[in-house]
Write a protein that binds this DNA or RNA. Structure first.
Length: 478
DNA sequence: TCATGTTTATAAGAGT
DNA sequence: ACTCTTATAAACATGA
């Protein structure tokens, strides 16, 4: 099958989008000046778009994903379903910032990535992280942990589960010296985003369980850690207790509180290769050329830190509106907050596991809507309706290029459909005790965590996109 | 003994 | 220059 490169996809999508929505024609050069926090959500949102496709063949077994799925899995570099191979991430992880979207073996030429989007300065290449032991996945350890937690489908996971998932999905770590496990443990211990759940006394087994600390749920956006570096003005401008509160956490230094959920999920742009093997290990993060590409891709994917936006809004720092299509952001949140009144709760990490793979988690009827999730840091309860900035306001409505519209537009038109978050997040399972799976109920986690399907692994993160309409599907524009 | 978990130290890339 | 963030290494403790 033909494999489309990123520019190909973008261009085709753009063309078809504009054909369908000529009113959305804006100058492509006016990309949104997203700050760094807005450049790191991508892969999972993309992932969500794809995996949210209700018609996507679900039985894509190992090695036989649907074409689209395959493309995106490859494209996103995320360990996909089952044995599908992880491959180049789309600058999702911080560590991926500035990295080539593809690395490794060339796939397609991208020669017809034409005018509209002059990206992809170098031939796209692709890395199959699942089978390529040479390339270190550009995900931070925190992100890896996070992925493993998501993939496990359990509210809490053991260390070995995390190990197993990582080794299963990233060949690099299968062959790497085990020091990376030390780093994983180090991350779990130091990063306050991760919370240890002690094993019950009468429960056999070793070690405790780990989960995302709900207190930091708002730092966990769409399945990845977000840790944007706040500007000084942001700090000073934030006088609401909410904003201040959370920022006070955020600004905790790594050395004073390395734990302060300082991980961005998107990993740092770190090469930092051990001398002993730096010559053989190539981390796919080092193409300055493609940093721009990555940013563009971010925009293309409409990735931004919604929680940060939301936070900004609530803290009265509306400067963000100048940088973001707030409607997009808010819509993306599924944000008519009335949803809480339905007893259905939203969450930052979306998670409508629409395909009903929630057998295990149906026990968890914890109530996390957006407010709940961020209750620790945001004390006001404001209807999102009040926050809507009329997107007829030319000053505030950001000029989106068609690529950006890829995502934002469907939010504009369909955010009302994104209000349903049927599935409680398993990542922040601070539900009433009786609702929590007892540790011993952790079902064969080692065996189960590995061979995940796309949906199983990441349905959790589909929150914003779980109810995509057919027209919303990317492939319909390709 | 080994797996797990905590803590300290250090290095380095990148942002401010 | 300084700070933040992440990676890496290592010492040490604990418990099965």
């Amino acid at each position: 099958m033909p494999v489309l490169t990123s520019p190909d996809i973008a261009n085709k999508f753009k063309e078809r989008w504009l054909a369908a929505y000529p009113e959305d024609h804006v100058t492509g050069s006016e990309s949104v000046p997203l700050d760094d926090s807005l450049t790191s959500l991508h892969w999972l949102q993309n992932f969500s778009i794809l995996s949210a496709d209700p018609e996507r063949p679900s039985g894509t077994g190992p090695g036989c994903p649907s074409s689209q799925q395959h493309f995106f899995i490859k494209r996103l570099g995320f360990p996909g379903p089952g044995t599908d191979s992880p491959s180049s991430p789309p600058a999702g992880d911080t560590a991926a910032t500035g990295m080539p979207l593809y690395l490794g073996s060339p796939v397609t030429s991208g020669s017809d990535s034409t005018a509209a989007i002059p990206i992809q300065p170098s031939p796209p290449v692709e890395v199959d992280y699942k089978t390529n032991p040479k390339v270190k996945p550009p995900y931070s350890y925190a992100s890896l942990i996070c992925m493993a937690m998501q993939a496990s489908k359990q509210p809490k996971v053991t260390l070995s589960t995390i190990y197993n998932w990582i080794t299963e999905n990233f060949c690099y770590y299968r062959h790497a010296e085990p020091s990376w496990q030390n780093s994983i443990r180090h991350n779990l211990s130091l990063n306050k985003c991760f919370k240890k759940v002690p094993r019950q006394k009468d429960e056999p087994g070793k070690g405790g369980f780990w989960q995302i600390d709900p207190q930091y749920a708002d730092m966990f956006v769409n399945g990845i850690f977000k840790r944007r570096r706040m500007s000084a003005s942001h700090y000073s401008n934030s006088n609401s207790s909410s904003g201040t509160h959370r920022q006070s956490k955020l600004v905790q230094g790594y050395h004073t509180a390395q734990n302060g959920c300082t991980y961005q999920g998107m990993g740092g742009k770190r090469k930092h290769l051990p001398l002993k093997n730096s010559n053989k290990v190539m981390r796919a993060t080092e193409s300055p050329l493609l940093a721009t590409e990555a940013n563009k891709a971010d925009i293309l994917r409409g990735d931004f830190d919604l929680s940060s936006v939301f936070d900004d809004v609530l803290s009265g720092n509306c400067s963000t509106f100048e940088d973001l299509d707030i409607n997009t952001a808010l819509s993306s949140l599924g944000c008519e907050m009335e949803l809480s009144g339905q007893g259905r709760q939203g969450r930052w990490c979306g998670g409508a596991d629409i395909m009903g793979q929630s057998q295990h988690m149906n026990l968890h009827h914890q109530s996390y809507n957006y407010m709940d999730l961020s209750a620790a840091s945001m004390e006001c309860t404001i209807s999102m309706g009040e926050l809507h900035v009329p997107h007829t306001d030319p000053q505030q409505q950001q000029q989106l290029d068609p690529d950006h519209l890829l995502q934002s537009h469907h939010h504009h038109h369909h955010h009302h459909q994104l209000q349903h978050f049927d599935e409680p997040s398993m990542l922040f399972p601070e539900q009433p005790e009786e609702a929590i799976l007892q540790p011993w109920e952790e079902i064969k986690e080692e065996a189960q965590a590995i061979p995940l399907t796309l949906d199983q692994g990441f349905g959790l993160c589909e929150g914003f996109f779980t109810e995509m309409q057919p027209w919303e599907r990317v492939e319909s524009y390709l």
